Simulated assay, not measured.
Amino acid sequence: MTDDEDAADTHPREEFHEDPLGHADVWAGMSVGDLATEYGKAGIGAAEMSRAVDVYTEMLERDDVTNFFGLAGAMVPGGMRKVVTDLIRDGHIDALVTTGANLTHDSIEAIGGKHHHGRTADSGHERDHDEQLRDEGVDRIYNVYLPQEHFTLFENHLRDRVFDEFDGVVATSEFTRELGRANLAANDENGVDEDAGIAAAAYEHDVPVFVPAIQDSVLGIQAWMHSQVSAFTLDALGDLTNITDVAFDAEKAGATVVGGGVPKNFVLQTMLTVPDAYDYGVQLTTDPASTGGLSGATLDEARSWGKLEKSAKNVTVLGDATITLPLLVAAARDRLE
């Protein structure tokens, strides 16, 4: 008898259960769904990613689940615009909560602007690098560049096609619907090569887009400026009614949260205003839970607040969402086919 067997006999194991770890196999031509399955044999982050695919796939394949999607961070500048747009078009997002910044960048691409590959500065030259970009009229989002003239294009678009449609108080989700309509029209009329994008797809498919911190963006600044010379203003509290109506009508509910901040909390807190809570949850974040901050708080923690059902299936995956989001979506699509 080995020392390990002696230890097992002396100390009954309540936490440990026989579940041998496997080793992920990879091969040429494997699908993303296959990769997620192989991740499930492994441990650490791979195991969490595999579980996230399992939960997300179940969320999408059930017809009785209303899917709420929170999108924070620089996801549009980071190249995730088409991933989200296609989810909307395929009926996998029933309510979108995002930032004014993501809608700003989405609109810029819809009307003919373009983000570009850039770079981070060499060590010790960070200040000089960004001062040079400022002199050249180029904004940097980590390793992505955006010429500032695209913001002028966007501001003209708002004045010419969006603001004049309103006179008075309007809920943010009504404003973003009109933005989507305008983006779609401009994209079509001007023959823009890039897709009309997130707001346009939401408009076409009647998916509400909520931006609870819209003032924290170029879109919000432009809305405020217009409010100074007109009766137009945005009603942030009106969207609490609108998103609560979606939640109240849901038979089952699932939350996919990309990043943290206001979009994450707005998605999750919605269940505090209705009798039920989320039945499914997947979170993709870079932030650890140990700071106590919202962006890193796990979905297990959200259960203590009553935002998730005690029986909910949920996973939190740590990692860059420009890596984890396409993997999550592609693997789920493989399994749904």
Rank of each mutant, 00 (worst) to 15 (best):
M1V: 13
A8V: 11
H11V: 10
E14N: 00
E15D: 12
E15A: 13
L21E: 11
A28V: 12
A28T: 11
G29W: 08
M30P: 04
G33D: 05
K41N: 05
I44A: 09
E48P: 05
E48W: 00
E48H: 13
R51H: 14
A52V: 00
A52W: 04
E58M: 03
V65R: 01
V65Q: 01
N67F: 01
F68E: 02
L71C: 13
G73F: 00
A74R: 07
A74F: 14
M75W: 08
L87P: 09
R89D: 15
D90A: 13
H92Y: 13
H92T: 00
L96R: 00
T98W: 04
L103N: 12
T104E: 11
G112T: 04
G113N: 04
H116I: 01
H117C: 05
A121N: 07
G124W: 00
H125M: 13
D135I: 12
E136F: 06
D139N: 13
I141T: 13
L146W: 02
L146D: 02
Q148C: 09
H150K: 02
F151R: 10
T152P: 02
T152N: 01
H157V: 08
L158I: 05
L158R: 09
L158K: 05
V162K: 01
V162F: 04
E165P: 03
T176Y: 01
A182V: 06
A185H: 09
A186T: 12
G191Y: 08
D195G: 05
A201V: 10
A202M: 08
E204I: 06
H205Q: 13
H205C: 12
V207P: 07
V209I: 04
F210E: 01
F210N: 04
A213Y: 10
Q215I: 09
Q215L: 09
Q215G: 14
I221D: 11
M225A: 12
S227P: 06
V229C: 05
A236Q: 14
T241R: 15
I243N: 07
T244K: 15
N265F: 08
T273A: 15
G281I: 10
G281Q: 03
V282E: 02
L284W: 08
P288L: 14
G293P: 10
L294I: 12
S295W: 11
S295V: 13
A297E: 09
T298F: 01
S304H: 07
K307C: 13
L308A: 06
E309P: 00
A312S: 14
A312M: 10
G319L: 07
A321C: 08
I323W: 07
L325F: 12
A332L: 03
R335N: 14
L336R: 14
